[in-house]
Every structure is written in C-alpha cells, then in structure tokens.
C-alpha cells in the first residue's frame, strides 16, 4: 500500500519534472524563432523531410479512409433511402475529425519519430555539443527550423488528407455505388460550413496538433538518453505520447467547436 503510493508519487513527480523541462525547452525554442527569420532556407530543407516525405503515406491513407467512409456510409444510409446525404457524411467526418486526427497520428509515426531519432542521434554523436562549441545555438540551428517546418506542414498535410479522402468517398459513392453526383456535392455544400467546419476542423485542429506533435518529437530527441537504447525509447515515446495527446486534445477541441 505504502509502496504503491510511493511509486505513484514518484511517477507523478517524474512526469511533472519532464513537463517542466519540456516547457522550458519550448520557451527556449520560441526564443530562438527570431533568429530563424534571417534563415528561411533552413525551414525549407526541413519542410522537405517532414512535409514532402510524408505526402505519400498521407495521400494513400486519406484515399483509403475516404473510400471506407463511402462504403460504410452507403451501407448505413441506403436503408433510410438517404444515400444523397452520403457526401455530407463523408465530408463532415473527414473535415471535423478524421482528417486532422488521422493526419496527426500518421505524421507522428512518419515524421515525428524520424525527428526524434535524428535529434537523438545528433546528441549521441556529439553533433549538438560540437555545434555549441562552435558557438552555434542548436535551438536556432536545429530545433527551431524543424519545429516551425512541422507546424507549417501539419495543416497542409491535414488539408491534403481531407481533400483526397473526400475524393476517395466520391469515387466509391458516385463511380461505384451510383449515388447521384450532383446530390453528393450539393448536400455536402449545404451542410459543410467554411468557418465552423473547415477552418475550425481542419485548420485550427491540425495547427494545434502540429504544435504538440512537433514539440513532443523535438523535445524527446533533445531529452533522449544518448545511447541506442535511449533513442529507441525516445522514438517510441514520441509516437505513443503524440497519439495520446492528440486524441485527448481532439476531444477538448471537438467539445469547444462542435459540442452543444
């Protein structure tokens, strides 16, 4: 009993300690942003690795998720003779929830883990220490560009995921199942609102997710124990923690935007 409480206390302190360090890390990161304005090239390079390289998995996943939504939505709506609402179902599911959330989860698996591993390896191989000894601040040169590129890339990836998903739903519904094309789009347009659904859903949600996903990824790399085991642990933590935080935040954001 006592031991269990003690263990709980230790775990709690450990997590608060990490949260504190992560917050300090974020503050230093934000402090280094000003220096980045002079070096946009650094961000472009990172946009390539977190954005362009994530495109295939995002596009493929978006397509399949959209097609599944089309099939499932049709199967359920056809009983009510409401298949003309299929466009609405597909679009609202993707725009409000699945687009930003799944894109963030895929991003954590594809780009977040890579960021953590890369930064962790730079730590192991003393590249970060070498940089500091060269009077170059790794926050400005390494962490900030990766963080900013990730925060920019996330909404773009979520938008691409959502758009391709809707096209996938369209393909299944209209081309395969014979839903009327006009009804598909017009019902969708009548139900999906630009600010309330598209902006709050895709843009705001994915911007928030991009922020936490990249914060976690870069911090875990920076905080990794500099051994191969430490990096593998940190990479796992990036994916697991990002998934948990994204899903929890999604609940909060959904309650704010779409609840009540």
């Amino acid at each position: 009993m006592i031991e269990g409480l003690q263990r709980l206390g230790r775990a709690t302190l450990f997590w608060f300690n990490r949260l504190g360090r992560a917050t300090l890390f974020l503050l230093r990161l934000l402090g280094a942003l000003a220096a980045l304005g002079k070096r946009p090239g650094l961000i472009v390079k990172q946009l390539y690795s977190v954005g362009v390289l994530s495109l295939p998995i995002i596009a493929m996943s978006g397509l399949f998720v959209g097609m599944v939504l089309g099939l499932q939505g049709y199967a359920n709506l056809v009983d009510f003779g409401a298949t003309s609402s299929l466009g609405t179902v597909v679009a609202l599911s993707l725009v409000r929830e699945l687009g930003p959330v799944l894109a963030a989860l895929l991003y954590a698996a594809r780009a977040g883990s890579a960021l953590t591993a890369e930064i962790g390896l730079m730590k192991v191989t003393e590249q970060l220490a070498a940089m500091q000894m060269m009077a170059v601040d790794p926050f400005a040169r390494v962490f900030a560009p990766r963080f900013v590129a990730g925060v920019i890339a996330m909404p773009l990836l979520a938008g691409i995921f959502t758009a391709i998903g809707i096209l996938g739903g369209y393909f299944v519904a209209v081309q395969q199942l014979g839903v009327d094309s006009g009804a598909f789009w017009s019902q969708m347009q009548a139900a999906v609102r630009l600010v309330d659904d598209v902006v709050n859903g895709v843009v705001v949600k994915s911007a928030v997710f991009g922020w936490v996903a990249n914060w976690i990824a870069v911090f875990e790399g920076y905080d990794a124990i500099p051994t191969s085991e430490g990096i593998s642990l940190a990479t796992t933590r990036t994916v697991v923690n990002t998934a948990l935080v994204v899903l929890a935040l999604d609940f909060v954001l959904t309650a704010i935007f779409f609840g009540a």
Binding site: L121, M122, T125, E126, Q127, A129, A130, M131, Q132, M133, M134, A135, D137
Partner: peptide, 19 residues
C-alpha cells in the same frame, strides 16, 4: 561565452561531423 567559443575549437572523439 559564444564569442569566446568562436576563438576556440574542440575536436570530439567521434569527430562529430554533421551527418
């Protein structure tokens, strides 16, 4: 400190080249 470090260099054991 960064000004001072510009005037000294350190050669790390692994070389620590940027990969």
């Amino acid at each position: 400190l960064y000004q001072l470090r510009k005037r000294m260099s350190m050669l790390f054991q692994s070389g620590a080249l940027f990969t």
